[in-house]
């Protein structure tokens, strides 16, 4: 297994340890993530059920594990967009499982991206978005999500039912959209 410090091409191994290679903030006490896991499970199963076409575009990449690293947060997310059993889990930064792809950026940047407000290639050009690991899987995921009639952010918000309005307002504030609208 490789680590982020190895210099060989990342994709030459089937699944690697792709931890954040930025200086992570110190969070000495593990977060009680068990509170978050049922919500993440609800989100991923709801989105998967709403968009079966997503998995045709993903092809074999639906079996891959994507590490979603929102820089500055004490946790990371691991997504496996498997059409049969989609998984989304939160992990403490010091305990990240092996993944195939790492997608990293600031939380507002990632939010704007899944909300369809900004182009991921442009984020890559400006170095606001970082990709490592299996590039083919990351491209397939980007294109599959981009073909959704809604945005991923809208789907996530809808999962909150009666709280969707306040959740949307918080996301807009964090991503900067709310401030732009004011």
């Amino acid at each position: 297994m490789m680590t982020e410090h190895d210099s060989a091409p990342l994709s030459d191994t089937p699944r690697q340890s792709l931890r954040s290679n930025k200086a992570a903030p110190a969070f000495p006490v593990p977060l009680p993530l068990f509170v978050l896991q049922p919500l993440l499970r609800h989100i991923v199963t709801t989105v998967a059920g709403r968009h079966p076409d997503l998995f045709e575009r993903l092809g074999d990449s639906q079996k891959k594990k994507f590490l979603i690293d929102a820089r500055g947060l004490p946790l990371v997310l691991v997504l496996q967009p498997d059409g049969d059993a989609p998984q989304l889990h939160a992990h403490n930064r010091h305990c990240v499982p092996p993944c195939d792809v790492r997608i990293a950026g600031s939380f507002p940047t990632l939010l704007r991206m899944i909300d369809g407000q900004t182009d991921s290639d442009a984020l890559f050009f400006s170095r606001d978005l970082s990709i490592s690991g299996d590039t083919e899987a990351s491209v397939a995921l980007r294109n599959a999500i981009d073909d959704l009639d809604t945005t991923l952010a809208e789907d996530v918000v809808a999962c909150f039912g009666p709280l969707a309005g306040p959740v949307r307002a918080v996301l807009d504030y964090v991503s900067g959209t709310g401030r732009q609208r004011q």
């Binding site: 990342l10 994709s11 590039t135």
Partner: peptide, 22 residues
Amino acid sequence: SPANHVHYHEDDQGNLTSRLCD
């Protein structure tokens, strides 16, 4: 540049290397 041949690596200093195959 087929995506399955593209590799990115960002080191601890934030330097990004892009490769196509070797």
